[in-house]
Amino acid sequence: MIFAAIAFAAALQPGFISHSMAGAAPAVPQAVQTAPPDRAAPSPTPLPLLLSGQIVDLESGFIVFATGDALKLASGAAITDYGSGAAPAYAISPGIYAVVTLDAASGEIQTVRTSRKPLVVGTPAALVPRRYVVTLSSPKPNPDLAPRQGLHPSILSKAVTVTVTVAVPPNTPFSDDVYMATDTSGWNAQAIKMQRLDGLHFQIRMELRGGSDIRYVFTRGTWSTVERDRAGLQRASRSLFVAGGDAQIIDATVYRWADLQ
């Protein structure tokens, strides 16, 4: 079925049309003619693969990416700076980014071009065909891959617009401001100032990185005016986990303040 789909896709390629039209009758397209290199069957002259990603080690004839994938380094492989093309003026240390050329025939890395900034070139290292990854053990599935994937906060993480709206109790003094105290601010009672929407609601719109996991409570600017539960007892801190997507909306209610009955 997959091959059929590939064959159909290949039939739409302009090159294929001109080739097939050379004969008198329409030919059945061959999958090997146009399939992507990493899905194709070995051919006499496979194309080299361009891979990029963060590297964590260059040792014992292997280059290891942050994915944990180790690839064989060809003897005499050239290591240059991606920008200048010259030998890098900085140490090749963990965390550096690299674009590597993988010779599909030998399965070895022929060139390594490094950069201190992320490179969006070629195929991400995470998608390297598994047959090129050097590993002693056979791959095993991980039935309980518990850690969240793809939400690692970094400069690559996408900013998410988070809108928090809180309803305050009616006895909130009208001239008071409402704030969010967060664990990321050391529980500063005035960490995030909210804007009044109307007589009973305040709102704040923030840009937070995907993967951020924040605990917070609402205050009126001091810790003696922190929110309480309905009975006036201390409530557990609220939790805000920024998942993916473009926007996230949170509606909250404060029932009581610590200093007001």
């Binding site: 095993k140 970094s154 690559l156």
Partner: peptide, 17 residues
């Protein structure tokens, strides 16, 4: 556990620019 699948960013060193 040898060969067990890992998270895709298992060894990512946080990039701080």
């Amino acid at each position: 556990e040898k060969g067990r699948e890992m998270p895709g960013d298992a060894f990512f060193l946080t990039d701080l620019g």
